[in-house]
Nucleic acid binder design. Structure first.
Length: 277
DNA sequence: CACTATGTTCCCAC
DNA sequence: GGTGGGAACATAGT
């Protein structure tokens, strides 16, 4: 389940491996994965060079030398591998970019949930997910004033609020549970009742958590690995996610798991008290 | 075999 | 337009 730190780790790995590489031909084994026809996908990208790989939230943006961008979202299980030409594709291999140096960039996805979108440079905003995406969780872009203004208007629960990518880019289920525990906020607390002090603490925890997770190359839950096939190390730092029934590290109360907006949610019933009107 | 869990986005109703 | 409920995606696991 790649969230922002995992996607950033993939971006860095791919930059080392394929920045500057030229795509000779492309095999599209699962056409539903792309937003244009197989023919257009190939016609636009074949014989062109990947000049840079950017990231926005959980989206990867492959910049090509013809002013086109291939936007890629990994969703739950998507991953990229770079392999020598001619390696037998697995049943989870869906797109193969044959490079001109006897290597292949392969997109694999056991759930087939991932999607790729081909757009002109600058047209990224026309995509539903990217058009309304919120600020990146960094100290410069995620300001207290912004957080306060959107949180004071929100009447729903804080957890779905944080998962909404148009509020803040990049948080998923894992880091969401983590930052709420770190800030001692119950996931079902009504967003507009969170105090200014808590907003600032939450902001700081989000920024620090994402930064630390990127440093640790992301989380390994299920089958996540980066472009080099390395597992992330961040799972060693998780305080609540996947720890239902274990004692809270702050107060020893057993962690509980509930459903919030249909998502599994682990929290400490003692130090995360619900606040509602 | 039927059902459920999984994360995210999209769609619809209020 | 915010909010919530549910669908869809595809598969593995029970």
């Amino acid at each position: 389940m790649p969230e922002l730190p995992e996607v950033e780790t993939v971006r860095r790995g791919l930059t080392q491996l394929v920045e500057g590489a030229k795509v000779n031909t492309i095999d599209v084994l699962y056409p539903k994965m792309i937003n244009v026809s197989e023919k257009e996908f190939k016609d636009v990208l074949q014989k062109h060079q990947i000049i840079r790989i950017d990231r926005r939230g959980k989206y990867l943006l492959f910049r090509f030398d013809n002013d086109m961008t291939l936007v890629s979202h990994l969703r739950m299980e998507g991953k990229y591998d770079v392999e020598p030409d001619g390696t037998e594709p697995t049943k989870h291999t869906h797109i193969i970019f044959h490079l001109d140096d006897n290597r292949e960039l392969r997109y694999k996805d056991s759930r087939k949930f991932g999607r790729m979108y081909l757009v002109k440079n600058g047209d990224e905003k026309t995509l539903s997910g990217l058009g309304t995406i919120g600020p990146e969780p960094t100290d410069e872009t995620l300001t207290f004033d912004y957080m306060k203004s959107i949180m004071n208007k929100a009447r729903g629960k804080i957890k779905p609020f944080l998962l909404n990518q148009s509020n803040i880019a990049g948080l998923g289920n894992i880091y969401c549970d983590e930052v709420l525990w770190l800030t001692s906020i119950h996931p079902e607390t009504q967003t507009n009742l969170i105090t200014d002090e808590e907003i600032e603490a939450l902001r700081k925890n989000i920024i620090a958590e994402i930064k630390m997770a990127i440093k640790g190359h992301g989380t390994t839950v299920h089958s996540y690995s980066n472009a080099f096939g390395e597992a992330g190390q961040f799972q060693n730092h998780l305080h609540v996610y996947g720890r239902k029934g274990e004692p809270c590290e702050r107060c020893d109360t057993l962690l509980e798991k509930i459903k919030v907006a249909q998502r599994g949610t682990t929290y400490c019933p003692n130090c995360q008290r619900k606040v509602v009107e």
